[in-house]
Design a protein around this nucleic acid. Sequence first.
DNA 1: GCTCCAGTACTCGGATACTTAGTGTCCGAGTTGATTAGG
DNA 2: CCTAATCAACTCGGACACTAAGTATCCGAGTACTGGAGC
Lengths: 160, 160
Amino acid sequence: MSEGVEWALHSCVNLAWSGPDRAVSAARLAAWHDLPAAYLNKQLQALARAGILSSSPGPRGGFRLARPLAAVSLMDVVAAVEGPEEAFRCAEIRRQGPGAGEPAADGAAAADCAIAHAMTRAELAWRKALAAQNLDEIRQQAERQAPEAPRRLRAWLAAQ
Amino acid sequence: MSEGVEWALHSCVNLAWSGPDRAVSAARLAAWHDLPAAYLNKQLQALARAGILSSSPGPRGGFRLARPLAAVSLMDVVAAVEGPEEAFRCAEIRRQGPGAGEPAADGAAAADCAIAHAMTRAELAWRKALAAQNLDEIRQQAERQAPEAPRRLRAWLAAQ
DNA sequence: GCTCCAGTACTCGGATACTTAGTGTCCGAGTTGATTAGG
DNA sequence: CCTAATCAACTCGGACACTAAGTATCCGAGTACTGGAGC
């Protein structure tokens, strides 16, 4: 899985801590965790395209949350960064070569392949688990472990 | 996910259909679905290293199932081909840069990171779903949809 | 003093290189079976 | 005819290229603020 997912998730929580009143530039968010700024910008762009963040150009510009953190699930962020297509894609190899049976009846989609069916089911469980948790729960848990984190971030941003 | 997973799964079912008495070479298995033989061989080697298949060199050699199909889960095959490490690896970026809080107490492992915890939980659901299904169930389901498949494979192998 | 305007600094956004993992191919070590010469 | 040694063919196994996705970077279009000139 792409490393940008972790960056995107942390950035969303950091934006929530920063507050909705002012935007934070990609450079600031990157510096906070010592990440390559231009590359993080790429991921944030993806989040903006997905409607999770909103971006503003120019001075005082940057990114901010487009909707409440509680309305963003882990699945939303993963789909925005990694793309919507599923990890296991059935190439239907059983239809190739001598092993190809009758050439796929009308209603016979990829779902008829027992292997593809089982793999898809497992991946669905993964997606469901990701969709069941929103970022606000993540934020609360993070604050429980590091209560001073939000204040430290705001202070650092103000000093920049 | 690597494409070899699909190949490996189909090959295992095909080996079950072929019967335990004689081994099938990677070239035969590849030709059956029109796959690159040398590359499929690579995947089968991984299955052999994992103890799922057993390999024999020389003429009349090839691969055969090392244990009953019912004793092989989808997870076993995926782990053998893709490797055991999990897809989402937490890089602990929150410990880097100005945002690094107190430098990780003794017992504070990666599990303390709320994001890593949630992602790991979702991936665990995926692994659990894969581990819950064994290849014999897959085989039965495939035979229900194409009852003539085993016989056709054995006939083709005998004709080679 | 107030308004308007030009200039500047800063932002995102996409286009452009670089690196790693995945994909594909090739050749050698080893083994089995067949063939042939000998008893 | 039976036995043993040689030979050839076939297998896996790992080492060697090629391709695509992921990673990282740079530069341009556009915007908001700052400073100053004019009224």
